[in-house]
Design a protein around this nucleic acid. Structure first.
Lengths: 194, 194
DNA sequence: GGACCCATGTAAATAGTTACATGATTGC
DNA sequence: GCAATCATGTAACTATTTACATGGGTCC
């Protein structure tokens, strides 16, 4: 029960206001999407688990024709659990980055291919930076905030993503420069020894 | 079959030299550990799967008393698969960071607690930076490299981790400063309206 | 005698992704 | 008529973590 973040993220959103699984999904995509994602299957599964554990409770609002809206809200023990989780200390994340994994094994790849891959990586990072910048400007996200402090936290979380992009971009540029500098030995698979 | 990185990381290590599950684990911890981890359960399971798919083959070296060493090596189709994976383009990773998740929900947390948490985060990041720096100096990692180019790739991968630490540290410092600046409203849960 | 290294694994739980299935309403 | 939005979910698979189990050898 140490970190288990998805459960607690849901509790966190429900503290802001009660919501359905569907709107929770929109929250994930729209606000914490830059550093945490969740699919609907996950959200519905976790909501059921949270209900079983009495951390949330559900109010079913029937609708004609449509499936009923199930509005989930925090219970008091859910609120307690959220606070407990928030106060828990946390160490830096072990990042898990397939880009770097591919990179370390890329020695055998043709230099032009690797360079092109890094160039593509740069382009993708730039696009993502734009996306994050737009998110910083997006009023509708910050409207939910209940205080200046909360708004600042949300901004900072997006700025973190921006800082990540910048760091990665700078790294990619440096990597390309350094790799370009290395003299290429002609590969002679079956040549004689010098 | 698009990315599935663990399988390919194992193929990548085995291309450097044949190895047992145990030594693969040491490689993971010792060289790519800063951006990819694997537990022994995962490694042994994947080795079995790779063997089933004929991407690796095993030579069993019996030992007296001890369990036999199972030395895994790439097959030629494994080598082909590794090359295919390497040449595949890749987009930037979706980072998934519990630290930030906690951070966005921390508005209700007492300001001193949040500040202390960020201070702790800074300390942990500094420790990790030292760890990465040591890794950059570690000869035994780079001895396996087969070329100047490969050595450079490995260095750059560690430098990426270092850059991440630096970016996170700078962010944490900024976050604390910005949060300290916000005037605190006294919370009056049951006070009368002004 | 106990801890750590080498070396193998299994079991079970949790977390995450992808694909499928239903069905009304609204806008192009 | 088709796609998107609102709203629910299930099934199957893949990935990851944690804990357990075995057993000799070496070092303090």
């Amino acid at each position: 029960m140490s970190d288990v973040s998805l459960k607690h993220a849901i509790l966190g959103f429900l503290e802001l206001e009660p919501a359905t699984g569907y709107t929770l999904q929109l929250r994930f995509d729209g606000s914490v999407g830059s550093f945490w994602t969740a699919t609907q299957s996950q959200i519905y599964r976790e909501l059921h688990a949270l209900e079983r554990d009495r951390w949330v409770e559900v109010e079913v609002v029937p609708q004609e024709g449509k499936p009923p809206r199930k509005i989930y809200a925090l219970t008091s023990s859910g609120r307690t659990e959220l606070r407990r989780w928030l106060a828990e200390p946390i160490g830096p994340t072990r990042i898990r980055d397939p880009v770097l994994l591919k990179f370390v094994f890329a020695a055998e790849l043709a230099p032009e291919l690797l360079d092109a891959m890094l160039a593509g990586y740069e382009r993708a990072l730039e696009e993502r930076r734009v996306e994050y910048r737009e998110r910083l400007e997006a009023k509708e996200i910050f409207d939910l905030a209940r205080s200046e402090r909360e708004r600042e936290l949300w901004k900072l979380s997006i700025e973190n993503g921006l800082a990540w992009c910048d760091a990665q971009l700078a790294w990619a540029v440096r990597a390309r420069r350094r790799l370009a500098r290395i003299p290429l030995k002609k590969t002679r698979k079956k040549g004689k020894k010098s």
